[in-house]
C-alpha cells in the first residue's frame, strides 16, 4: 500500500508540471490569464491525479477503478465546450474576428492537452513502479518534451513565403499586387488607406499549402493575428479598415491588407509567419494520387 502513494504523487506532479509547461504557450492565443490560468491548472491537476491513479488501480487490482477514465474523458470534452463558448462570446465583440475555425482549434487544443497530461501521469507512475525515482524523472521529461513538440503545430511561415506587396487603388478597387481586395467609395478613406496601410503577399510553397490558405477560417486567423500583434486603426464605424485576406483565384496566392497602428512591415511579416496553421484548415491533397496528378499538370 505504501508504494501506491509515491506512484500517485510522482504521476500527479509530472502531469501538473507538464500542464504548466504547456500553458506557457497559450498566452499569445488566449487572454484568459490569470483566472483562465487557474481554471486550467486546476483541471490539469485533476487530470494528472486521475492518470496517476491508473497504475495503482491496476496493481491493486481494482479494474473497476480504471473505468472512471471514461468519466474523465467526458469531463474534458466539457472543457472543450466551455472554451468554445467563452471564445465565441468574446469573439462577438472583437473588431477583427478570430473566426470559428480558430476558436475550434484552440478549444480542441485545450481538450487534447488534458489527455497529454493524463498520459504523462500514467507513464510517470508506471516508470516509478517498474524502475525508481530516476526512471520516473526521465520518463516525465520525455513525456513533457513529446507533448510540447507534438502540440506546437506548423505556422504559416513554414508552409508559405510571405513578402511585402504593393498596396494601390485601381479606380476605387483596392489591390494588393494583382489581387483585388474590395472597393472603397470615399476619397478620404482611400487616401487614409494608401497613407497608413500595409500589404503582404502570401505565396504557398506547394499544393498542400495552397489548399490550407484557401480556407477562409485560416485567412481570418491570419488577419486576426496580424491585427492583434500590430494593433488596428479600425473602429466600429470604419469597416473599410478591416484587415482582409483575399486570394488570387488563378494562382492561389493570398494578399493581406491591413491598416495597423504600428506601420512596421518587418513586424507584419513576422506576425503573419507565426500564425498557426489551423487543424481544420490543414489539408493534404498531395497525399492522394489524384491530387499528385493534378499538381503535376500545373507545374
Amino acid at each position: 500500500m505504501d508504494g501506491f502513494l509515491e506512484i500517485i504523487l510522482a504521476g500527479t506532479l509530472a502531469g501538473t508540471l507538464s500542464r504548466v509547461m504547456l500553458l506557457r504557450i497559450d498566452y499569445r492565443q488566449y487572454p484568459g490569464y490569470p483566472h483562465g490560468m487557474v481554471a486550467h491548472l486546476s483541471l490539469g491537476v485533476i487530470a494528472s491525479a486521475i492518470g496517476a491513479v491508473v497504475v495503482p488501480a491496476l496493481l491493486k487490482p481494482d479494474f473497476a477503478a480504471v473505468t472512471f477514465l471514461a468519466l474523465a474523458a467526458q469531463q474534458f470534452r466539457e472543457i472543450r465546450g466551455m472554451e468554445r463558448i467563452t471564445l465565441e462570446n468574446l469573439d462577438r465583440n472583437e473588431l477583427v474576428h478570430r473566426g470559428n475555425d480558430y476558436i475550434e482549434g484552440i478549444a480542441r487544443t485545450f481538450e487534447a492537452r488534458n489527455y497529454l497530461v493524463m498520459g504523462t501521469a500514467v507513464l510517470t507512475g508506471a516508470a516509478y513502479h517498474l524502475g525508481n525515482l530516476l526512471a520516473a524523472v526521465i520518463m516525465a521529461a520525455l513525456a513533457i518534451i513529446f507533448s510540447r513538440s507534438f502540440m506546437s503545430g506548423e505556422t504559416i511561415g513554414d508552409i508559405c513565403r510571405v513578402e511585402p506587396a504593393r498596396l494601390y487603388f485601381q479606380d476605387t478597387i483596392l489591390k494588393v499586387d494583382e489581387i483585388g481586395i474590395m472597393t472603397v467609395g470615399l476619397k478620404e478613406m482611400r487616401e487614409k488607406i494608401l497613407q497608413d496601410g500595409l500589404a503582404v503577399k502570401i505565396t504557398p510553397l506547394n499544393v498542400n499549402a495552397r489548399a490550407t490558405i484557401h480556407d477562409l477560417g485560416q485567412r481570418m486567423a491570419i488577419a486576426h493575428t496580424a491585427a492583434v500583434i500590430l494593433g488596428i486603426k479600425k473602429d466600429i464605424d470604419t469597416p473599410e479598415l478591416t484587415p482582409l485576406a483575399r486570394k488570387n483565384i488563378d494562382t492561389g496566392d493570398v494578399g493581406l491588407y491591413i491598416v495597423p497602428m504600428e506601420k512596421d512591415m518587418e513586424a507584419l511579416l513576422l506576425a503573419v509567419k507565426r500564425t498557426p496553421v489551423l487543424e481544420s484548415a490543414r489539408s493534404k491533397p498531395l497525399a492522394t494520387q489524384a491530387g499528385r496528378k493534378a499538381a503535376r499538370k500545373n507545374v
Partner: peptide, 9 residues
C-alpha cells in the same frame, strides 16, 4: 459613419 457601414462607388 452613422450606419457603421462601408461606402462603395
Amino acid at each position: 459613419r452613422i450606419l457603421d457601414a462601408a461606402v462603395h462607388d
